[in-house]
């Protein structure tokens, strides 16, 4: 092993991550990406009406979820949180059931649009479409945990465009006043559909706003998975110690169109798209793992095969699931009893 390999290898070890950990993290990044690609294929084939994806955001999501207690803690996602939800416990099948709007879709039984992930067993609270609304919910969840002394930490996510909503600002204020145990994540891909960062806010980074609410704010490069892990774990430990919320901004590339209703070529140049692809966390993380000798051509192939098998099986399984019965259309508006 070269000297360089030893120093870089030290990076994940220094953070307390085993070789097994980082390989497993990479697996989730790859799984989320493959699932994402499959969803677009299915949409183009007419099997799904709508896709919204997390391509480019997977690295920071997997890293941020890694320090969380998968059983104890809460997650309030947004529509790009595919990778984070997979790490938290949802399966590719769960997500495809939502894409196909099947009766057994664990998020909503086919009621809500795809991409609005929720799962009772994994303590993932379903998101709502109007951007920003999940932030006050997460803060309320964290407040309830504190009141009940359960030790739970809540993580919530949003895009930088969503931070222009009053909900977002009001949530930060409330969280800081009450020292709520909540990790306030912003995945900044510098675009809200077509609207660039400079039209969204006059500050250069979302994280600087934390000062205005009386909490720490940090920014990490979303293509540097280990750095994302480091800053999130620090914030997680703060929350656990009762020191309150942290605003965490991940700078991420948006690799695809906003959604299947959008064509990003209308407002992004070819050069911009080329630049953005260089920041793909799948590639940057893979390069790290290759450099430290954890991924070789052989192990990478094994991993790719494992991911492919899982996606194929999940697609079949979700596709076989029944659609919601038409006569259930008016159910679940009010409590129906046990």
């Amino acid at each position: 092993m070269s000297a360089e390999a030893k120093t870089v290898q030290a990076r994940h070890r220094v953070l307390g991550l085993s070789d097994q950990d980082v390989l497993e993290m990479y697996y989730y990044v790859a799984l989320a990406r493959a699932l994402d690609e499959r969803m677009w294929v299915l949409q183009r084939a007419g099997k799904a009406m709508f896709v919204i994806s997390g391509a480019g955001h997977e690295g920071c999501q997997v890293a941020a979820m890694w320090p969380m207690d998968k059983k104890l803690d809460w997650f309030v996602p947004y529509y790009r949180s595919v990778a984070a939800c997979l790490v938290k416990g949802m399966t590719a099948t769960d997500m495809l059931l939502g894409l196909f709007a099947r009766a057994t879709d664990p998020s909503s039984g086919g009621r809500q649009m795809p991409g609005h992930y929720g799962h009772p067993r994994f303590k993932i609270l379903s998101t709502s479409s109007p951007v920003g609304t999940q932030y006050p919910h997460a803060v309320g969840i964290a407040y309830a945990s504190r009141l009940r002394r359960t030790g739970e930490v809540t993580m919530v996510s949003i895009g930088e465009g969503g931070t222009s909503q009053g909900d977002w600002h009001e949530a930060l204020n409330f969280a800081a006043i009450h020292k709520c145990p909540v990790l306030l994540i912003v995945e900044n891909n510098e675009l809200a559909i077509s609207v660039p960062l400079r039209k969204q806010m006059a500050v250069s980074s979302v994280a600087v706003r934390a000062a205005g609410y009386g909490m720490p704010g940090v920014t990490a490069d979303g293509s540097d998975v280990l750095e994302c892990f480091r800053v999130t774990r620090e914030a997680y430990d703060r929350a656990k110690r009762g020191e309150g919320p942290t605003l965490i901004e991940f700078a991420v590339p948006r690799l695809g169109s906003h959604s299947s209703d959008d064509q990003q070529e209308r407002y992004r140049s070819r050069e911009e798209l080329e630049q953005v692809r260089k920041r793909d966390p799948l590639l940057t993380f893979r390069a790290y793992l290759e450099r430290v000798g954890l991924l070789t051509q052989g192990t990478l192939q094994d991993m790719t095969d494992r991911v492919r098998r899982e996606i194929d099986l999940s697609t079949d399984e979700a596709d076989r699931a029944p659609l919601p019965q038409p006569d259930t259309a008016t159910r679940h508006v009010f409590y129906e009893g046990e």
Binding site: G110, P324, P326, T328
Partner: peptide, 15 residues
């Protein structure tokens, strides 16, 4: 129908 609009087509046509 007196229900939030469902996403699944089988339900939506009823609503």
């Amino acid at each position: 129908a007196d229900v939030p609009m469902p996403y699944a087509r089988t339900l939506e046509v009823r609503a």
